[in-house]
Design a binder for these strands. Structure first.
Length: 803
RNA sequence: GCACCUGUGGCGAAAUUGGCAGACGCGCCAGACUUAGGAUCUGGUGUCUUUGACGUGGGGGUUCAAGUCCCUUCAGGUGCACCA
């Protein structure tokens, strides 16, 4: 067979698409399989060689599942709202919609050219109003259930552009676009109460099969900690409440610290003797950019000012404590104030050393004059009154009991996770469907008026003082209150890019539904996603956000499963040939179009799967890819030797072994070894010089998920079939035929390898030892020695220990 | 700084429960066919002081047996980054 990949690939891509070969069926009685990859952001650069790594891997899984008789859904779409498009639109004065359309067209044709078995009849686009109607609908449900609220929030503010920046736009503390300083500024923002779900987002990780790294990162991000809140009386008359994970060290508290933003300062300003100094410090802290704060944390140079005129009292021993204000205490975590135990906390220790504050050891085991002793496993309580002699964990329980019974504190769990800032003052996003009425407050746009479409504007640039471009559209803003029909105004903020991707996997189940985000039947059938693969960069935010939304939809009865993804894996990056990250500036970018043009999509697919461990990053090699092309050339040339029917005796075992290996490796995402085993098989066939047509058919089907175009061509032109190889039954293997009848066992004397011996499979321990002793070669080595120990691993190894 | 992950030939990498380290591919070497070879085919290819010895970042340990388990150390990567 002539392997003209350009002709073959185009031909089969068209055939598959015309016949709808990969459309998921709406027959809900069939066993289903839902494979999902992260839908791309259609950037102007076109497809990156990294995209196909993930797409091809799950394409192989999907194709195999399809051949195994599952009703497979493998969908694709576009996550198309977002800043790069908007910035491009601003710069080139083109509507972002036009930019998006163009980019999608390019991406789609590139994906098509890879022969991925996506069900294009389910294609979705987050910027399509039929789609974002339901993004808005979900937001309204969140609002109605009290999970969306407006609040003043510190945001990134570029001092030169005079606009709010997303975190992604802040690079090393400066504006990505103009390079000037970014500061924090208070602004009213829509927030989603993801913190309500913090505990469930941790607990339910037990229900799913995520790779460990992902579980760890999710848990770290949520950051659960157990401790206590403790009240400290002050001379100002108001208690200061602190959060601590180490209530056991309460006797070691020698001062207190509150964050610069803490309301306590303003409230008791009249009592503070050095209020000017304190206010100056507050102002200084407010001015600090993220960059400076991070720098400071690195050097651990603590700053702060003592609040003179107010003192606090340690509730456990009545000791008088000074109060400081310092920016190492964050207003956003815990209560915004802490008790400082310099002997057992590194940050407190640094601060105490700098300000000459006392350090009192209350847990023995370290040298607290040299450094803070933070070990909680080994220490014994000292200098701690009724806690003396206890272990740390016992002391924790005892002190919390004491605090509770004396009304001075309580047990408390805290999370690092903060509520989700959901507003963007940008054009290219979903309008937030809320209306503000003086009389009724915030009122959602009525559901029958959804979608609330993005209005046309003259300029996509953010407004002068950081307002959304929509804020200048008076006609659009002014409206009637849906409740009281009075004068009202629309919200002008839009949603962040994360919104559309937080539920897209649900829309695929029923993408053309106008009456609901998807029918209950479709959701119950398809959900949860059986296997979701994506990049590690989305492990924290996208994964957490979408799990949160899915849990909410579960709570209100839309979804029947509490977790959206049953299984999550992650792929490594493909690096440039020099081992560095691919980027234009490094000049090491490989364009997938060029590769497909030179070697074909099948070779490209095969190479990206063969490149190495799927989870690890791997450098591209323009040399290595040739090996994959050679393998496919060899496969194509099998058409010249295939003849007759039945099984070739010498090839029977290699075939069964290969089918087993490929079948199992695909399920564990070890595509590299699956391909290696097929290469071994083709080498054995070459050595033999012949194979039957039946065997060629089997090989074709095995190769089909990896190199579908060539397999399809072989199936039709050489095997003479008129169905799709891609839909033919997956080859089966006979376990008995994968085992060798005769095994080569390693023979060791005292653990040193001395040679091998051939024995029938299943030879007993005694017989194996007898065989070794009987052999001329090994018996010589044992002459005159005393046998101490004999170890036999059946069919593998014999080790005789002698003296 | 803290947490997690990874260290195996010239290169990408293989190696169920600890059981013959280096499968498969690239590259390289030799040969064949060729006007030619960045095409194809055949053979070889961990290292060395080669009757054998040594080899999975370094050091130590457990074991009949360690790439795999334990301790320690070094190097690289990723995540979080003053989270009380």
């Amino acid at each position: 067979m002539n392997y003209d990949f350009k002709k073959i690939e185009k031909k089969w891509q068209e055939e598959w698409e015309n016949k709808g070969a990969f459309h998921a069926k709406n027959d809900f009685s069939l066993p289903k399989y839902y494979a999902l990859v992260e839908f791309p952001y259609p950037s102007g650069q076109g497809l990156h060689v990294g995209h196909p790594r993930s797409y091809t891997a799950l394409d192989i899984v999907s194709r195999k599942k399809r051949m195994q008789g599952y009703n497979v859904m493998y969908p694709m779409g576009w996550d198309a709202f977002g800043l790069p498009t908007e910035n491009f639109a601003i710069k080139n004065k083109i509507h972002p919609k036009t930019v998006t359309e163009k980019n999608i067209a390019r991406f789609k044709s590139q994906l098509m050219s890879l022969g991925l078995s996506f069900d294009w009849s389910r294609e979705i686009n987050t910027t399509d109003e039929k789609y974002y109607k339901w993004t808005q609908w979900i937001f309204i449900q969140l609002f109605n259930h009290g999970l969306a609220y407006k609040s003043k929030m510190a945001v990134n503010w570029c001092t030169s552009c005079k606009c709010v920046l997303a975190n992604e736009e802040v690079v090393n503390g400066v504006c990505e676009r103009c390079g000037s300083e970014v500061i924090r500024r208070e602004k009213s923002q829509w927030m989603l109460k993801i913190t309500n779900y913090a505990q469930r987002l941790i607990d339910d990780l037990d229900l799913v099969d995520f790779i460990d790294r992902v579980n760890v990162q999710q848990k770290n991000w949520i950051g659960r900690s157990e401790g206590a809140e403790v009240d400290f009386e002050t001379t100002a008359g108001e208690n200061l409440r602190v959060y601590t994970t180490r209530p056991d060290t309460l006797f070691g508290a020698t001062y207190m610290v509150i964050s610069p933003e803490h309301p306590f300062i303003e409230k008791h300003a009249s009592l503070i003797k050095n209020i000017d100094e304190v206010n100056a410090y507050k102002a200084e802290a407010a001015k600090k950019s993220d960059f400076e704060r991070t720098e400071l944390a690195d050097k651990k140079e603590k700053t702060g000012v003592e609040i003179k005129g107010i003192r606090a009292v340690n509730p456990v021993n009545g000791k008088d404590l000074p109060i400081f204000v310092s920016d190492y205490v964050l207003i956003t975590y815990g209560t915004g104030s802490i008790m400082a135990v310099p002997a057992h906390d590194t940050r407190d220790w640094d601060f105490a050393k700098k300000f000459g504050l006392p350090i009192i050891e209350v847990v023995s085991g370290g040298d607290v004059e040299k450094e803070a002793f933070t070990d909680v496993q080994t220490g014994i309580m000292v200098n701690s009154g009724f806690l003396d002699g206890l272990e740390v964990s016992e002391a924790k329980d005892k002190i919390i009991d004491w605090l509770v019974s004396n009304g001075k504190g309580e047990r408390k769990v805290n999370f690092k996770l903060r509520d989700w800032v959901f507003s963007r003052q940008r054009y290219w996003g979903e309008p937030i469907p809320l209306i503000y009425c003086e009389k009724c407050g915030w009122v959602p746009v009525p559901e029958n008026e959804l979608p609330l479409t993005l209005p046309e504007v003259d300029s996509f640039e953010p407004g002068a003082d950081g307002e959304s471009p929509l804020a200048s559209l008076t006609d659009w803003i002014n409206c009637k209150c849906p409740k009281c029909a009075g004068y009202a105004k629309r919200e002008t903020d839009t949603m962040p890019q994360w919104a559309g991707s937080s539920w897209y996997f649900l829309r695929y189940c029923d993408p053309h539904n106008d009456a609901s985000l998807a029918s209950k039947e479709a959701l119950d059938y398809w959900m949860p996603v059986d296997w979701y693969n994506g990049g590690m960069e989305h492990t924290t935010l996208h994964l957490l956000y979408s799990r949160f939304w899915a849990k909410f939809l579960y709570d209100i009865g839309i979804l029947s499963c509490p977790e959206p993804y049953a299984k999550r894996t992650s792929h490594g990056m493909i690096l440039g040939e020099n081992g560095e990250k691919m980027s234009k500036s490094r000049g090491n970018v490989v364009n997938p179009d060029d590769i497909i043009n030179e070697y074909g999509a099948d070779t490209m697919r095969l190479y990206e799967m063969f490149i190495g461990d799927f989870e690890k990053s791997a450098p591209w090699s323009s040399q290595s890819i040739k090996g994959c092309k050679r393998f496919l050339d060899k496969f194509a040339s099998l058409s010249q030797i295939a003849a007759g029917r039945g099984a070739t005796p010498e090839l029977e075992k290699p075939f069964h072994k290969t089918i087993k290996k490929v079948t199992e490796d695909i399920d564990s995402l070890k595509m590299n070894t699956a391909i290696a085993s097929m290469m071994e098989l083709i080498n054995e066939i070459s050595d033999k010089g012949s194979l039957t047509l039946d065997e060629l058919e089997t090989f074709t089907l095995l190769l089909c998920p990896f190199a579908p175009h060539l397999a399809e061509e072989m199936w039709h032109e050489v095997c003479g079939k008129d169905t799709f190889a891609s839909l033919a039954p997956w080859p089966s293997f006979d376990e008995a035929k994968t085992v060798d009848a005769v095994c080569e066992l390693a023979v060791q004397i005292c653990g040193k390898f001395k040679g091998t011996i051939m024995l029938d499979a299943g030879t007993s321990k005694d017989d194996a030892l007898a065989a070794v002793k009987a052999s001329e070669k090994f018996s010589k080595l044992l002459e005159g020695k005393t046998v101490i120990k004999e170890i036999v691993i059946p069919d593998k190894l014999i080790n005789i220990v002698v003296k």
